[in-house]
Design a protein around this nucleic acid. Structure first.
Length: 555
RNA sequence: GUCCCAGUAGCUCAGUUGGAUAGAGCAACAGCCUUCUAAGCUGUGGGUCGCAGGUUCGAAUCCUGCUUGGGACGCCA
């Protein structure tokens, strides 16, 4: 499936044997052989720095070592066409690139599976993301987390990991009581009463909508009722309303979850179990009428309250129980996608996990840095409280789902993102998503033309006819796709997929302008190029699918 | 004050677990549509990789200090 990786593996092995044959190092001294793809084409298909690494062990100059290795290489076994020594001791390999011939048939055959590998080997990974409190609209920052988490899951799944997507619903505790109070205020306001919003209430427009809806459905009915009963009803009503809206917004954003986990379910016994376990370990103590976790034993900079002096839990306590639950479900790794404002929370969570007796490397947090929104050259401040935040829904209809998703996964997650609304809105070449989609649409048009002109789509084409520089560049890039995805998956860097897809589109456009695909005078070459175009189309589409962006047939 | 993230071309950002002459898009400039989609292509200019030390054959990358911007430091969530 991954022909490029096979070529690399064989070459690495052959280098290793050459080192041994040249008697430069003993087998156990042999460092890991690293092949890199040189930036300069003139430096070959692969390069290795092994000679420099061996300089100490072999006690020879790197250039001499490189020469020794070169003389002991089996060229035919490793499909090498030429070897050069360059710079301080790099060995550059120019490959026969036979594998490129197999590439197109492989891609056409595997089609929508091209790019999938089993590098994850079925490792069970759970990704928990978004997990917004059901107290307001999803805004820009959440959208970035949603896009990141979703694409991360996509590439993990494509690389043979066993992935589960989970959303943690904070449907218990203080913020949900505040939601009930906010709904109450909006309801009474809808009835024309002059009530002020609670101090810690939620001021979003959506809550106003809830108040209106309750008024429409029930009129004055809830105003008359007992307050506790009323608040209890408003709490459930508001929660269901908010959750439904969040789920719909996410679905429209093409983000779906396998599991929606309710915080409330922890209150049956899981919190007690977790607390008991922490107590058994001796990591819990009482002070000032509160119950504390001695998280400083595990690297936190201060101890943390688990149960407040009024007897209620802090946010941390159920969250510890939640993480214990997740770990007990047998995942090899749980990845949490959190906003930048929660990064200070990591040490205490990690401490709790250690206190519970789990290995801390099973727990990973990906921090999504802030999104700064710009409009008319001015920075807009986002805040849930002021209700001025740009909602995801608004953004999707404004800018388009493809552009939003693409934009968010273009940047590395741990770097802040400036989102220019005017730029994202503009349906022009400034927007990179069109560039990639256009490449796909272009190929589709070509293939349609090919069919109209009666060119055959047979797979019996001759790949050796693809010899121009642009063709070879395209082929090599196509061959890198599975490795790129696997790499992005293992390093948890979805933005590498966006980068790849952009590079491939760029090569396609360049090829398109330099060479004509459909040429009646050269039927055999045309056949080969049509096959190449089909392979590029498949790869672009698969890449875009991983990002969650559509691949239009025409634009 | 402590901790986390970032500082790379005018702007927004990449930079392959330390590699060769640091890249892309946008912006600027000059070209390319009787030819499969010009939402495209080709070329040019543009850099003290925040600053200063250190580690080594080699540092944008690793270490230390400093500096700038953002964020977090609650018996809120």
């Amino acid at each position: 499936m991954n022909v490029l990786a096979q070529t690399e593996d064989i070459l690495k092995q052959e280098i290793g044997e050459a080192v041994l044959k040249a008697d430069l190092a003993a087998k156990e001294e042999l460092p890991q052989i690293i092949l890199e793809k040189p930036k300069e084409k003139a430096h070959g298909d692969f390069a290795t720095n092994i000679a420099m690494q061996l300089a100490r062990i072999a006690k020879k100059a790197p250039k001499q070592i490189a020469k020794d290795i070169m003389e002991h290489l089996d060229h035919s076994k490793a499909s090498i066409s030429k070897v050069e020594i360059a710079g301080p001791g790099f060995i550059n390999f120019f490959m026969k690139n036979d594998y490129l011939g197999e590439l197109i048939p492989t891609i056409l055959k595997t089609d929508e599976n091209y790019g999938k590998t089993n590098t994850g080997q079925g490792e069970k990974v759970q990704v928990e993301f978004v997990s917004v409190n059901p107290t307001g609209d999803l805004h820009l920052g959440h959208a970035r987390g949603a896009a990141f988490g979703d694409v991360l899951c996509n590439i993990l799944a494509a690389s043979g990991y066993d992935v589960e997507r989970e959303y943690y619903i904070n449907d218990a505790g203080n913020q949900i009581d505040q939601l009930a109070l906010s709904v109450e205020a909006r309801y009474l306001q809808a009835l024309g009463e002059n009530v002020t919003m609670p101090e810690d209430g939620y001021h979003g427009d959506d809550i106003i909508g809830i108040g209106e809806k309750i008024k429409e459905a029930y009129g004055q009915e809830w105003k008359e009722k007992d307050r506790a009963e009323r608040l209890s009803f408003f709490k459930e009503y508001g929660l269901q309303y908010e959750l439904k809206k969040i789920e719909e917004d996410l679905a429209d954003f093409r983000v779906h979850f396998d599991n929606w986990f309710s915080e409330r379910t922890l209150y049956q016994d899981k919190i007690h179990d977790a607390l008991a376990k922490l107590k058994d370990g001796g990591f819990v103590y009482e002070k000032d009428d509160a119950t504390w976790l001695r998280s400083t034993d595990f690297g936190d900079d201060k101890d943390r309250v688990l149960i407040k002096s009024d007897g209620s839990y802090t946010y941390l306590m159920p969250d510890i129980a939640y993480h214990q639950d997740k770990l007990e479900r047998g995942f090899d790794k749980i990845i949490n996608v959190w906003g930048a404002d929660h990064h200070g929370y990591i040490p205490r969570m990690r401490a709790a996990i250690l206190a519970l007796g789990y290995a801390s490397d099973k727990f990973e947090v990906q921090i999504i840095q802030m999104v700064n929104l710009f409009e008319n050259g001015e920075k807009l401040r986002m805040s849930k409280r002021t209700g001025k935040a740009v909602a995801l829904r608004e953004l999707m209809s404004d800018v388009g789902i493809d552009a939003v998703r693409y934009f968010f996964v273009t940047r590395s997650n741990d770097s802040q993102l400036d989102f220019d609304l005017d730029l994202a809105r503009s349906q022009s070449n400034e927007n990179p998503v069109y560039y990639v989609q256009y490449a796909h649409a272009r190929i589709c048009t070509m293939l349609k033309q090919a069919a109209n002109k009666g060119f055959s789509f047979e797979q019996d084409m001759d790949p050796t006819l693809l010899t121009t520089e642009k063709e070879v560049d395209l082929l090599k890039k196509l061959g890198e796709f599975p490795k790129t995805i696997a790499d992005a998956a293992s390093k948890h860097t979805p933005h590498k997929v966006t980068q790849y897809v952009f590079d491939l589109a760029s090569l396609l456009h360049s090829f398109y302008n330099a060479e004509k695909v459909l040429d009646e005078d050269q039927p055999e070459r045309t056949k080969a190029r049509i096959a190449l175009m089909k392979a590029v189309r498949i790869t672009l589409r698969n890449g875009l699918r991983l990002i969650g962006v559509t691949a239009p047939k025409k634009m």
